[in-house]
């Protein structure tokens, strides 16, 4: 694990240095690191949010009033839904897909024509099938709605600041 993290650090330094000369390769290294960083930061923010919402305090109160039986088997989702559903999950999934596409482009760039064709064809197929799934399940409209809501939130904050 530590060796893997050390390699990751070396790759990060290498890809930042060679970003201009070898953009696709560097992006292939950088995107997973960005994804992991985003998920970690979201996790920390979710934990802080949970503490601010008196999550631990409520559990301690339960323990005080009802004893051990009060908290036995009472698991709450807390703020984990920030990562397991919602905008952050979509962002992470989209970034993972972008990372996968970058890897495929890297592969296509340096391989023979037949393999290039197979890889390209399967990539196009996967993109089309993802779009189909999103349309059929109605999630694409949900995504649009979420982005509109976020726009409204950002606009409100901007208006408050300007006023």
């Amino acid at each position: 694990m530590f060796k893997y993290l050390k390699d990751l650090k070396n790759n990060l330094i290498f890809s930042i240095k060679n970003f201009k000369t070898d953009t696709f390769n560097s992006l292939g290294h950088l995107t997973p690191i960005i994804i992991v960083f985003i998920s970690f930061m979201t996790g920390i923010i979710a934990l802080i949010k949970f503490i601010l919402e008196n999550g631990y305090h409520q559990q301690i109160e339960l323990l005080k009033t009802n004893g051990i039986v009060g908290v036995f088997g009472k698991f709450s989702d807390g703020t984990t839904n920030v990562l397991s559903q919602g905008l952050m999950l979509y962002l992470i999934v989209v970034l993972l897909f972008i990372n996968f596409c970058i890897i495929i482009f890297n592969y296509i760039k340096n391989e023979k024509k037949l393999k290039q064709f197979i890889s390209m064809f399967s990539l196009v197929c996967s993109i089309f099938s993802i779009i189909t799934i999103l349309i059929v399940s109605g999630n694409i409209f949900r995504l649009i709605r979420i982005s509109e809501e976020n726009q409204e939130v950002v606009l409100n904050i901007y208006n408050n600041i300007s006023n």
Binding site: L47, F50, F75, S76, G78, T79, T80
Partner: peptide, 9 residues
Amino acid sequence: LWILENIIS
């Protein structure tokens, strides 16, 4: 995160 939030339970 889930384990940290439900550490007591």
